[in-house]
Amino acid sequence: MIDWKVFRGEDVIDPPLGPAEDCVGLLIYTEDGAMSASLSLAERAPFADGSLDGGTQEERAEAYRSIISYAGTYDVDEPSARVVHHVRIATVPHFVGTDLLRTCVFEGADMLKLDTPPMKIGGEWLESYILWQRNGAET
């Protein structure tokens, strides 16, 4: 992920995790139709006890607040330049079982901008996009 913008009308506001420059992300599509998307704060505090199932209530709340991730399958509709992510697992529980529509805008051979329809963020319906850059993989 190289950019993430959220729009309130003409105004650009920070994404839910914070400024895009403080975030990292990874988007994976496989040839057999699987996909995975993860967005996270680049700097996340580890749990003080260092265990997989540990952490204080505050540490766990911050860990949940600082990542958005989902995976499932996908379909591409080339005529409309859209991809649909069929979500099977997600950090955001209400994503599970839904289809997330994204409009694809190719910017050169190595960049893909995924525009989203309005999503509820902070109680408001806001539009956004995420710009992804290919990481050296050859097709």
Rank of each mutant, 00 (worst) to 15 (best):
D3F: 11
W4A: 05
V6Y: 06
F7W: 06
I13Q: 12
P15W: 10
P16H: 13
L17Q: 08
A20V: 01
E21A: 04
V24P: 00
V24I: 07
L26Q: 12
L26M: 13
I28N: 09
D32E: 13
A34K: 11
S36G: 14
A37R: 00
A37M: 06
S38A: 12
P46T: 03
P46S: 05
G50H: 06
G50R: 05
G55V: 05
A61C: 09
Y64Q: 11
R65K: 15
R65V: 05
S66E: 05
I67L: 15
Y74P: 02
Y74I: 03
Y74Q: 01
Y74F: 11
P79F: 09
A81P: 01
R82V: 07
V83M: 07
V84G: 15
H85F: 06
P93L: 11
T98V: 07
D99R: 15
D99T: 14
L100C: 01
C104L: 15
V105N: 12
V105I: 13
G108N: 08
D110T: 13
M111H: 14
L112D: 04
K113C: 11
K113Q: 14
T116G: 13
P117R: 15
M119W: 03
G123Y: 08
E124V: 04
E124H: 10
E124G: 03
W125N: 15
W125D: 15
S128G: 00
S128R: 01
Y129P: 04
Y129K: 07
N135V: 10
G136Y: 08
A137E: 10
E138H: 01
T139F: 13
T139S: 15
T139Q: 12
